[in-house]
């Protein structure tokens, strides 16, 4: 068995670009999924009954489906249903955003609910409206509890971007496996792929640990 690791170096430009795409997907998804998650959470908590049911249905649906299936569904079904043809990248982004928004909505809802009722009562006893109480008393405290979970979601999302490789989005997993197919250097490329993810993901995981320690809440 002869190994030729120079393959990795030869294709470094493609791999670096692909890594960039991976980061881009992660960031873009979060940029969409955080505000949308807040929106859905607020609808679930404070909306009128039919809106609450709809929001809950959305969250429960996407938390109970494999992401890879959502990716395929978005790629094959959405163009037929809507007549709009999106690029693989946009489709992948849409699937990721739909998925992460649901998780974020649950995170925000649980975070807000974890604040004791007494805090809202104390704020209202001063004469604040519910909206003011939410803004000035509940959300600042809820953010402390939400931040570590959001950080954890970020790391999961970073790994999940590998799933959009199945619809030929040129992120890291897809490009690495393309190079493998072209050069037949299976062990080298697959190990390199794992190693690159490890190099990128390990520090992120450690950062999440630090965030969880720093924002630990003791009641």
């Amino acid at each position: 068995m002869t190994l030729d690791w120079s393959v990795v170096w030869q294709h470094r430009e493609a791999l670096v670009a692909a890594t960039g795409t991976t980061f881009l997907l992660t960031i873009a998804t979060m940029v969409i999924a955080v505000p949308c998650g807040v929106g859905v959470a607020v609808l679930r908590l404070y909306g009128i009954a039919p809106v609450r049911s709809l929001a809950t249905g959305y969250v429960e649906l996407f938390r109970n489906l494999p992401l890879i299936l959502v990716v395929y569904w978005a790629f094959y079904v959405v163009p037929i249903l809507t007549g709009v043809g999106l690029s693989p990248l946009a489709t992948g982004l849409a699937a990721l955003a739909l998925n992460v928004t649901a998780y974020n909505a649950e995170t925000f809802r649980a975070g807000i609910n974890s604040i004791r009722k007494g805090q809202v009562e104390a704020a209202m006893a001063l004469g604040m409206s519910r909206a003011q109480a939410l803004r000035r008393v509940v959300l600042p405290q809820a953010l402390r509890r939400i931040t570590p979970v959001l950080a954890s979601t970020w790391v999961s999302l970073f790994k999940d971007t590998s799933l959009v490789s199945v619809i030929a989005v040129t992120e890291l997993a897809y490009v690495a496996m393309q190079v493998r197919a072209q050069t037949f250097r299976v062990l080298e490329m697959l190990t390199a792929m794992a190693l690159i993810y490890w190099l990128l993901g390990y520090p992120q995981a450690k950062l999440v640990d630090w965030i969880q320690r720093r924002y630990a809440v003791n009641e």
Binding site: S162, A173, R180, L187, L190, M193, Y197, W198
Partner: peptide
């Protein structure tokens, strides 16, 4: 444990199926 938090499932599966036989 921390490595499995960093590497996607897809990568682990693909490596186990395609690369492990070689090693």
């Amino acid at each position: 444990i921390d490595s499995m938090r960093a590497i996607p499932v897809l990568v682990v599966l693909v490596w186990t199926f395609f690369a492990l036989p070689i090693v």
